[in-house]
């Protein structure tokens, strides 16, 4: 079943004479359970695309259906709720709040979902164990290595049991050994939990570990092909 359906999406930065056309008539369908890599040079518009897919950007032209819901008609307030309940983000530079403990960082999406402290605590323990950081709950993110911080960030992304994960260059700031570990974790999540993963990368080796690669160049989809398996 098709989960994400993007139809003729265009995106401009700026307005009038100086506006810049980032995305040209993008059409893309992603089904439940897929592991998709989006590849392209910097400035090709791949990050812009996943921002739209991940409900971060509500200013685009065209149509976006999510489980048949017309996202392009949603208001900004509905977007926050949509983000909170359906998608988890993993960023290149982890994006953890340094003044909060690891546990509080991971529990943040649940807090905004309106969960109770007690329920949040046990769920956080669960996901931290799932990413192999059972004992890091009380630590501050600063005291962890890059690989560990990315694991925390993944734990935060999956804590709400989202329908899909958006990963923007998740291995970009990590060495190759840690990168491999993170990719193993992603594959595990995809295969065991059936979590849909949409990942942006410019590293061919990383992309090859997914099931499908979408190439983007200058805001247009160049190719869309299955790999591996």
């Amino acid at each position: 079943m098709s989960m994400i359906d993007i139809k003729n999406v265009n995106k401009f930065y700026g307005q009038g004479e100086s506006s810049f056309h980032v995305l040209h008539d993008i059409n893309l369908s992603i089904a439940e359970g897929e592991f998709v890599s989006i590849m392209g040079q910097s400035g090709s518009g791949k990050s812009t695309l996943i921002n739209i897919i991940g409900f971060l950007d509500d200013e685009f032209e065209g149509k976006y259906f999510y489980y048949k819901h017309p996202i392009h008609e949603y208001t900004r307030a509905q977007f926050s709720k949509l983000r909170n309940q359906n998608v988890g983000f993993v960023f290149q530079n982890f994006k953890l709040i340094n003044t909060l403990s690891v546990g509080d960082n991971v529990g943040l999406p649940l807090l905004y979902a309106g969960e109770k402290r007690q329920a949040i605590k046990s769920r956080v323990r669960e996901v931290l164990a799932a990413v192999g950081l059972s004992n890091a709950g009380e630590k501050k993110p600063k005291n962890l290595s890059g690989g560990q911080q990315q694991r925390v960030s993944i734990a935060r992304a999956i804590v709400t049991n989202p329908k899909f994960l958006i990963a923007d260059e998740p291995t970009g700031a990590l060495d190759s050994q840690t990168s491999r570990e993170i990719m193993t974790l992603f594959k595990e999540l995809n295969q065991k939990n059936k979590t849909t993963i949409i990942m942006v990368t410019h590293d061919e080796k990383v992309a090859l570990q997914s099931e499908r690669i979408v190439h983007i160049l200058d805001g247009r989809i160049l190719s869309d092909e299955k790999v591996g398996v």
Binding site: R83, F89, T99
Partner: peptide
């Protein structure tokens, strides 16, 4: 600013 961005990304509403 970063903290605000992270909170918004994980589902905080503008109101909260």
């Amino acid at each position: 600013t970063q903290e605000i961005g992270i909170r918004l990304a994980v589902g905080a509403s503008a109101r909260s």
